[in-house]
Design a protein around this nucleic acid. Sequence first.
DNA 1: TTCCTATATTAGACTTCATCTAAGTCAAGC
DNA 2: GCTTGACTTAGATGAAGTCTAATATAGGAA
Lengths: 138, 138
Amino acid sequence: MSDLLERLRGRGWRMTAQRRVVAEVLDGEHVHLTADEVHSRAVAKLPEISRATVYNTLGELVSLGEVLEVATDKRAKRYDPNAHTPHHHLVCAQCGAIRDVHPTGNPLADLPDSERFGFTVSDVEVTYRGVCPNCAAA
Amino acid sequence: MSDLLERLRGRGWRMTAQRRVVAEVLDGEHVHLTADEVHSRAVAKLPEISRATVYNTLGELVSLGEVLEVATDKRAKRYDPNAHTPHHHLVCAQCGAIRDVHPTGNPLADLPDSERFGFTVSDVEVTYRGVCPNCAAA
DNA sequence: TTCCTATATTAGACTTCATCTAAGTCAAGC
DNA sequence: GCTTGACTTAGATGAAGTCTAATATAGGAA
Ligand SMILES: [Mn+2]
Ligand SMILES: [Mn+2]
Ligand SMILES: [Zn+2]
Ligand SMILES: [Zn+2]
């Protein structure tokens, strides 16, 4: 994730303790935290960081294309640092756990012109739903 | 939609003016209204209907499987009366307009076992994004 | 038809998630 | 070290949705 920090500095981002901590919290694979979860974890490293700054920073990271917003359930949005390798999501309908997945096939090619209603289609998002092994065991 | 009313009555649903009006408002193709939009349109037909009743009724219709909740953008949920013919959605990124679409292909088959992480996968939802003709013209 | 009651409706308080504001702070260039 | 415009903050505000407890009514019973 210091790649990220380098890129951000290069883009003229002013580096602050708060921003560094948010970026650190977002490091890892299959990471899809809510803003509140990011805030809790950030507070553990930097007790005085405010919710507003977490929201501001996440919003900036999204604008810069470094983080994706995902809205898999109907609750709080989640933030996905895996923005540079296209992927889709597999969501547990019970506990909300999310995994990154890479299906084969090309869903964009599967939408015939007759089903495009004159839209310019640029993107497709596939969400698989099911029950995770943990929830199935319980 | 009187099909719907018949089915609901058959299931022991107590028929009230409010429920009838909500069901009427949801009639049609490519209908994906927010709860607030349903309420506004219902008020036009039955001025004293409350927001709580609209939310209650929509929730019941969803539980009964007669209406689907769709969360295509990060704003209010939308309610989709087209629950009996499986379909996906094409969303205008600018104005939020939604069309029902029927892509070819079988995305469930496109998720290899190695990408299922032990989940029991039961459902897949495909959301296409683009710009509608209206927004492209403007 | 009238009565009864379980079910439905209502206004408005409350919750959650998110954004905004205006005052204070500080990173980084000079 | 200064200066300054960008950053951070607490708390107010807003939007979407849920809950509550008082009131009304659909539809079956008599
Ligand atoms: Mn992801
Ligand atoms: Mn639809
Ligand atoms: Zn689970
Ligand atoms: Zn549009």
